[in-house]
Amino acid sequence: MDIFLQQIVNGLTIGSLYALVALGYTMVYGVMRLINFAHGDLVALSAFVGLTVYTQIFGEGITSLIAVVAVFMFTAVIVAVVGVLLERLAYRPLRTAPRLSAVVSALGAGLVIQNAVMLIWGPNMKIFPSEIFPSTIWAIGGIVVTFTQVMILGLSSALMVALYFFINRTKMGTAIRAVAIDQDAAKLMGINVNRIIMVIFIIGSALGAVAGLFIGAYYRGITFDMGWMYGLNAFVAAIMGGIGNIPGAMLGGLLLGLFNAMITGYISTQWAETFTFVLLIVILVFRPTGILGEKVAEKV
């Protein structure tokens, strides 16, 4: 039972990270019908940017709330700028091109970001500063919960709730949903589609940045090529929930995190990815549009 509860806590933690990253995929896909293969690499980039901001600007060992908030803000802004540039340079010129051309461009962009990270920070694993969060640990019953886990769960939930309200309750959110349903009609209604797409890349990249920092804080070891696996898992989560569907990405992320935790806890770590993809394929065969249904403009 203790293992079970512990794995639930761990699963929800990883699941929150997946969900944050999945939101970036699903929002971009919903509006542009593009799998942003570079998104995972943006997440990896965030961890390294956060590392540099923390050690260079604030100096190691300084743990104050202000410093930590500043690291998150700085990183989110820098990565959001990279995300916007990515869209401008690699995706916008291909909006009318065959869809697979944009996929190749996304793969190329991922390669560029990944190797830029390698050239700047080196090919070896870097250790993310442990001092960024207090090392407080709570033992409740037989299970252990770390401060970092609480932060991840708390902040991710807060961000997701905020995003949900932003999309459903604000004018900008309405415009985003309109663009996701029909770009041409949205344009005719006076919505600036380019601006909406920019906003989506800002939000998606910033959420990815938060996830990247959390990955650093939680797992400690960060490598330049770690983005691919996180990205792929998050994209799988987005599909499981229903691509283009924002609550779907959150649900998919949490479910996949829990599922992973249960598999690694009870069955096998060696076969974890196999189980993930078997689950994905089973979901796709029986519910081709994901658990909550996809929300993508479909042209007949």
Binding site: L89, L107, G108, A109, L111, V112, Q114, N115, A116, L119
Partner: peptide, 8 residues
């Protein structure tokens, strides 16, 4: 890196 740029 160059390769990725070339792909784009």
């Amino acid at each position: 890196l160059v390769f990725g740029l070339a792909m784009i």
